[in-house]
Write a protein that binds this DNA or RNA. Structure first.
Length: 407
RNA sequence: GGUGAGGUGGAUGAGUGGCUGAAAUCAGUAGUUUGCUAAACUGCCGUACGGGUUAAACUGUACCGCGGGUUCGAAUCCCGCCCUCACCGCCA
């Protein structure tokens, strides 16, 4: 809790007290209810024998019990509700490897890779490059929707498509099964993966139907396995999905939002795994290596951070962030976040598996971006710009159909 | 949007007031048997939250789409909602 810089440690004591109270009430309720059930059965037997008097006197007794049951039922329901409401306020517990800290400055750089390019004089930030080469029309997006909803045009649109295609192929080649999920989810799904109640207000909410626009494919894809009991042999489940992502980003307007750096709608390819608890730590490293290989193949300078407790998401037990260096802006841009949620999401989702001993236990879930497109595009444009155009990395050329953009 | 049918355990599918947490079949699982592939037979085989135990055994409650109601007693009757399917209308 302290590592996560979580401000309300008293919640834990509250929960324990609430749970004790709940148990007390349930025991009281169950015992009385058991008496009622037994008596009801007896009444049936008396009726069958035609012993009306005995039946009637029992009925009176049952009516009595039921009266005392009413208030118990109410307080039990209230107690359960209260416990539930308090429980969902609790973030996941960080693992032992997570550094303590409050801000991004406390994150630990695990390693760096790739080479920062030396840009020629006159190198431009991506928001100028996209204009010069006619790749994105931000103004048009303003007109159609609002800020943060860019319109990709011509080669820009094609490059987006090429990136999505490449990422999906890269993931399926590594054994991930491709999904194309719904882009809106119901509240149950949003609770299960931890967006609700924590991120209420950050998601677009279609109130007429009470649907939420997904902030990431993680939400619909992980929820595929909500309320399921898997077989141990089914694990690990490896899934990948492309989706647009919608984020309100309320309160984050400012200097960092220029161009592609922060959008309300962006494209992303996600990888998700549901694994045996014994495997999740190793799986996390696998996924990090997988994303690293992907970033490398785009010939971008990158670094991998282990997030400190305070910078991690609500649901994560441990998170590695990938940042690529955006050469003209001279800043690092987060392009992927790979996390192990352990049993946090699966607990909310009731995603379990039946082990060899026949007992059901919670699986572990993990996910990561592979990758978030707009910032990758920004870095690609800025790092691979030449006086005459944009160089397309070799890995991407088969999907883009060309090795350069521009003259 | 209109009309009709329907939502039962992993699947198919019985079940119209008490003997039903729920038949049967399939799948799954443990075992027996037949010299392999395969088949036959037998047992087991829902979940959650409690009590209990070192752990079990054992035991209570709830759950047959969701929420209410009627009744001593509801999968079964009544009301509301959601969803699915079919046909019609509209439409990419």
């Amino acid at each position: 809790m302290a590592i996560k810089n979580f401000g309300q440690p008293q919640l834990v004591d509250q929960i324990i007290a609430l749970d004790d109270e709940r148990k007390r009430l349930q025991l009281a309720f169950d015992t009385t209810q058991a008496q009622v059930n037994a008596a009801s059965k007896e009444i049936g037997q008396h009726m069958a024998k035609g012993d009306k008097a005995a039946a009637e006197s029992l009925k009176a007794q049952v009516a009595d019990w039921k009266q005392s049951l009413e208030p118990l039922k109410l307080s039990l329901a209230q107690s359960e509700k209260q416990l539930q409401e308090t429980l969902v306020l609790l973030p996941n517990l960080p693992t032992a490897e997570v550094p303590a800290g409050k801000t991004p400055e406390d994150n630990v750089v695990v390693r760096e890779g790739g080479e920062k390019p030396v840009l020629a004089n006159g190198a431009k930030p991506h928001w100028e490059l996209t204009q010069i080469h006619g790749l994105i029309d931000f103004e048009l997006g303003n007109k159609i929707t609002g800020s943060g909803f860019p319109v990709y045009t011509g080669k820009g649109a094609k490059l987006q498509r090429a990136l999505v295609q490449y990422f999906l192929e890269f993931n399926t080649a590594a054994g991930y099964t491709e999904y194309l999920p719904p882009f809106m989810v119901n509240a149950d799904s949003a609770y299960a993966t931890g967006q609700l109640p924590d991120k209420e207000g950050q998601m677009y909410h279609a109130t007429a139907d009470d649907f939420y626009l997904i902030p990431t494919a993680e939400v619909p894809v992980t929820n595929i396995y909500r309320d399921t009991i898997l077989k141990e042999a089914d694990l690990p489940l490896k899934m990948t999905a492309y989706s647009p992502c919608f984020r309100r980003e309320a309160g984050s307007y400012g200097k960092d939002v220029r161009g592609l750096n922060r959008l309300h709608q962006f494209e992303k390819v996600e990888i998700i795994q549901i694994v045996h608890p014994d495997q999740s730590a190793a799986t996390l490293l696998d996924m990090v290596a997988h994303v690293e290989a992907l970033v490398k193949s785009l010939e971008l300078p990158y670094r991998i951070l282990r997030l400190c407790g305070g910078d991690m998401g609500f649901a994560a037990a441990i998170t590695y962030d990938f940042e690529v260096f955006s050469a003209a802006q001279e800043r690092w841009l987060e392009v992927s976040s790979v996390s192990n949620f352990e049993s946090f999401q699966t607990h909310r989702m009731k995603c379990r598996f039946k082990g060899a001993d026949g007992k059901t236990q919670l699986a572990h879930s993990l996910n990561g971006s592979s990758l978030a497109l707009p910032r990758i595009l920004a870095a690609l444009l800025e790092n691979h710009q030449t006086p005459t155009g944009i160089r397309i990395p070799a890995a991407l050329q088969p999907y883009f159909g060309s090795d350069t953009i521009g003259a």
